[in-house]
Design a protein around this nucleic acid. Structure first.
Length: 696
RNA sequence: GGGGCGGUAGCUCAGUUGGUUAGAGCAGGGGACUCAUAAUCCCUUGGUCGCGGGUUCGAGUCCUGCCCGCCCUACCA
């Protein structure tokens, strides 16, 4: 990293892994995205030209299936996901320069370009592959889309790659009594042509490129070199037979598509291309230019794609290679994997309804180092860290001194503070180095040391005593000038982590925080804006409510073909109690004609929103197909979030007499089970049903 | 099955190329203060550094065996 030695601005292109357009963002994803955002903001604050290029990853079998489940086109589905993703990221104060999609013209073009280069280099070969297909849809089935019994131990509900009970690995074709996740029918075996990239040809290059400590962390190098590079690299299968959602491979008569992992990283370049077009820049100035640093942030689960295939592709096509790949570990919550049943599988959207994003940003920063270690989100720790560090130590500096000088402002010259400001200014470089090396936890530690030195100063200077003696106004002003400047210095150092907080601090001093350099000189002789609370403590009840809400959102029906191991397992013994039945005994017998008077229909929720004044109600728009849309007020507010309802198929009473309610007319009823309150479980239709169909 | 990483005070972690009585923050205990979102400040109690061998004048730090935990495992190991 020679460029770090001199002070000229660097040109830095940063990417985070592309979120897969198949589901919502959760707090596990956010480890990486917050990490990336902090690093980018840091570079910008330091005055470097840094762009954060991002996109949704949109191709593959999983997307096809999800689109089908939602009964919309893939394009519609990924558009919706992209909107949701970006909304969540904004909520966490993540700021990118461009957000693209791998399903774009730009990406198609660059895929073609790289494909030609691979062909020209003679790296592409075609071979027959025997694999499983869905008997109904004709789609090839990835291993994760085939379930059956482990051929070794006969454990049921295992995926097509290995058995999580006995650990045995096998091929999907070896499964006993296999079932396709798409149709639920037994898959059929077939042989098709696949295209492979012979990356073994680049073995020497990769051996060299993966040297420890250069572009990769040491553990990553060890892993790649010890495992993959110690033997000839296998040819990489980069194609999938039609039907597939993705880009067709040229000259294959639309019969072959690029595998999603082929075009996903190319999305980094394509999204840059789009940004260039919007900003009057040339792509080659960013991807074919030795003056540019390229930094990828990604999780350890996708190392091999980014550290073997990706450099091989870039090298062959003559693009810049990554300067550095920053690979992080996973998130555990309270020491365990995130769990849907324990309510620790927390979606970004859910978090934001209960807690300030600044908390999570700071907590992750305080935990993150440059290595692949997993980090644990322990909620006791979370609250202690945020309250103690940010509120009790940092914010306290301002809240205990600002009001004394509200009327008179800061001293005209910076008083003698015994070297505190200068000492903290000098610490800036070390803090910056830690940010640079992604050692955020070290940076946070150093910053908190500054707060720990500033608070005793205030303690000894006793502004509250000076305040009582009118002859000591000047001394009081000086003490507060020092305290507030030490506070502001800390806020600048924290700005990459807490951008919104930094903004408020800027407003307090009437001097926006825009550069790291501002930490090096104190502000004097200026008035202050009125001090307002900058950050409040974490409320335990909010955490509890968030966890509770995360549990509830998982009590939603799952399409039959996705039901998990436990429900397919033959060893499960059903032990449902009769509690529910006792609580609400069966109604009097009715005739079939009685039942027929109630017209139950499948409907799709096309809109869902909170009714501000209503305690229990959500306002839903239900579509019965075509122009037939009903407005229904449903008492499910405690159990469901509007956003998770949209797109879902439900069962409604369609011929119920409309009812005038306080907030409008309700034109029907949504069927749900449960005792009420948060115990509400909507009835769903299995995939295949369409809006308007009657329930018999 | 294969592999990666880790096991240091109650908790979260630091411990540089092996070197004097093993550190920090939080929590706990005692005191001070009352400006501050019951915050802050001072003092203080906690550790056979997972277990056993070995190398060395000297090991948390290197080697080795074992135990435990977490994680990863591309059409794959």
């Amino acid at each position: 990293m020679e460029s770090r030695k001199n002070n000229s601005p660097r040109k830095i292109l940063v990417t985070a892994a592309l979120p897969y357009a198949n589901g919502p963002i959760h707090i596990g994803h956010l480890v990486e995205y917050i990490q990336t955002d902090i690093w980018v903001r840091f570079q910008k604050l330091r005055g470097h030209q840094c762009i954060f290029i991002w996109a949704d990853d949109t191709h593959g079998t999983a997307i096809m299936k999800s689109a089908r489940d939602h009964q919309c086109s893939e394009e519609e589905f990924i558009a919706r996901m992209s909107t949701e993703h970006q909304r969540d990221f904004r909520g966490f104060q993540i700021e990118w320069d461009h957000y693209g999609s791998t399903h774009s013209d730009a990406n198609r073009l660059i895929c073609h370009e790289i494909w030609s280069a691979l062909n020209r280099a003679g790296l592409v070969v075609k071979r027959q592959v025997v694999e499983l297909f869905d008997a109904e849809t004709g789609e090839a089935l990835p291993d994760r889309f085939v379930k059956g019994k482990c051929p070794k131990c006969l454990s049921p509900g295992q995926y097509g790659d290995n058995c999580d009970k006995c650990g045995h690995t096998y091929r999907a074709t070896d499964l006993v009594e296999p079932i396709s996740a798409l149709s639920g029918k037994p898959p059929v075996e077939g042989a098709t042509d696949h295209f492979f990239v012979r990356i073994e040809e680049l073995h020497d290059f990769l051996e060299d490129w993966t040297a420890p400590g250069v572009h990769l962390q040491e553990e990553v190098s060890n892993y790649l070199r010890g495992h993959f590079l110690s033997e000839p690299l296998r040819d990489w299968d980069v194609s999938r037979p039609a039907p597939y959602f993705g880009f067709t491979i040229p000259e294959t008569d639309n019969q072959h598509y690029w595998y999603v992992w082929f075009d996903a990283p190319i999305g980094y370049i394509a999204s840059t291309k789009e940004w260039c077009d919007l900003n009057n820049q040339k792509l080659d100035d960013w991807w074919r230019n030795d003056d540019v640093e390229i930094h990828h942030f990604l999780g350890k689960d996708i190392q091999y794609f980014h550290c073997l295939f990706w450099p091989a592709m870039l090298k062959t096509a003559g693009f810049n290679l990554p300067t550095r790949e920053h690979i992080h570990g996973f998130l555990t919550v309270n020491g365990e994997k995130m769990s849907k049943t324990k309510g620790t599988f927390i979606k970004a959207e859910t978090y934001l309804r209960y807690l300030d994003p600044a908390y999570l940003r700071y907590f992750y920063a305080a935990k993150l180092g440059s290595r692949l270690d997993d980090i644990d989100l322990n909620f006791n720790d979370f609250k202690a860290k945020v309250d103690t560090d940010l509120v009790n130590k940092v914010v306290n500096l301002a809240s205990r001194s600002a009001k004394f000088v509200e009327a008179i402002g800061l001293s005209p010259t910076y008083p003698d503070d015994g070297g505190l400001f200068a000492q903290a200014a000098a610490a800036g470089e070390r803090i910056a180095e830690h940010y640079e090396e992604c050692e955020f936890s070290q940076a946070m530690r150093l910053i908190m040391e500054l707060a720990d030195r500033a608070n005793p100063f205030v303690e000894n200077a006793q502004p509250w005593v000076l305040h009582k003696d009118p002859s000591k106004v000047q001394e009081l002003q000086e003490v507060c000038t020092i305290a507030l400047n030490l506070f502001r210095q800390i806020a600048i150092y924290l700005a990459p982590v807490l951008p919104e907080f930094a903004e408020r601090v800027g407003a307090l001093f009437n001097d926006p925080i825009v550069s790291w350099k501002q930490s090096q000189s104190p502000l004097v002789g200026r008035s202050l804006s009125k001090f307002t609370h900058l950050l409040k403590r974490v409320e335990l009840k909010d955490i509890e409510a968030m966890i509770e809400a995360s549990k509830q959102t998982e009590a939603t029906p799952t399409p039959a073909h996705l039901i998990d191991d436990a429900t397919q397992s033959t060893t499960v013994e059903w032990q449902d109690s009769d509690e529910a039945l006792q609580a609400e005994p069966l109604a009097a017998e009715c005739s079939i004609d009685d039942f027929a008077r109630v017209d139950l229909r499948v409907a799709r929720i096309i809109e869902a929103e909170h009714v501000p004044e209503a305690k229990k109600l959500l306002k839903l728009k239900l579509s019965l197909g075509g122009d037939n849309v009903r407005t229904v007020f449903a008492g499910i507010k405690a159990a469901y979030e509007p956003a998770q309802l949209v797109g879902r198929l439900v069962v409604m009473v369609a011929n119920l007499k409309p009812r005038e309610m306080k907030f409008g007319t309700s034109e029907g009823m949504v069927c749900a089970a449960g005792s009420g309150g948060s115990e509400v479980y909507l009835l769903a239709a299995d995939s295949g049903a369409v809006p308007g169909q009657r329930v018999h």
